[in-house]
Every structure is written in structure tokens, then in C-alpha cells.
């Protein structure tokens, strides 16, 4: 996979998730970050740091991106969310405008 086609997401704890660019674009915020003109660092290096999102949540978010890519159009397949992370996940979703 070419580097331009992937994006590196870094959690608060420093974990790095390398995902497909197309998956990252599911989030409107990420989409903006990665496409906005004017030379912000995110676009330049293809990596985004999230100091307020924990590894666990970011992992779930990444899973959601892929799930969304696969099923968003129509097919009803549940996306499992553990109750204890629900709130934090929601906050992250709002932040990422997903």
C-alpha cells in the first residue's frame, strides 16, 4: 500500500493506527483536516494526533470507519459497542463529526 493512501492516527497514549485514507474520510473532521488547503501539518505528513482520545476509543473509532465503509449503504448489520465506553465514544464521534 502506498503511503499516500494511508493515514496515521495517534491516540492520547501514543498508539499509532495506520488506516486507509478512504476509511478516515468517513469522518468529516478528518476529511477537512486532510484536504484543507493552506499547508497544515496534518495534510503535509498524513498523520493526526488526538491528545484527548484514548487508545481504546480510537481503536473503536477506526473499527467503525471500516464498518461504515462496508455497510453504510443499506445492509442492517449491528456495530457492537460495549456499554462502558458508550459515552466516550459518543464524544469522540461528535468531535470527529462522524
Amino acid at each position: 500500500m502506498r503511503k499516500e493512501d494511508t493515514v496515521k492516527l495517534i491516540s492520547a497514549e501514543g498508539f499509532e493506527f495506520v488506516i486507509d485514507r478512504s476509511a478516515a474520510l468517513v469522518s468529516n473532521t478528518l476529511k477537512n483536516m486532510l484536504t484543507s488547503s493552506g499547508g497544515f501539518t496534518e495534510r503535509e505528513f498524513g498523520e493526526v494526533r488526538f491528545p484527548e482520545i484514548s487508545t481504546r476509543i480510537l481503536e473503536k473509532v477506526c473499527q467503525y470507519f471500516y464498518w461504515s465503509l462496508q455497510y453504510s449503504s443499506g445492509k442492517e448489520v449491528d456495530f457492537p459497542i460495549e456499554p462502558e465506553i458508550t459515552l466516550e465514544l459518543m464524544m469522540a464521534a461528535n468531535y470527529l463529526h462522524t
Binding site: 477537512n32 483536516m33 493552506g38 499547508g39 497544515f40 496534518e42 493526526v48
Partner: peptide, 8 residues
């Protein structure tokens, strides 16, 4: 001078 700023 935007380069170097972090969007995030």
C-alpha cells in the same frame, strides 16, 4: 504562515 500549524 499556516504551514506548521496543527489543524487538529
Amino acid at each position: 504562515n499556516a504551514s506548521g500549524l496543527s489543524f487538529e
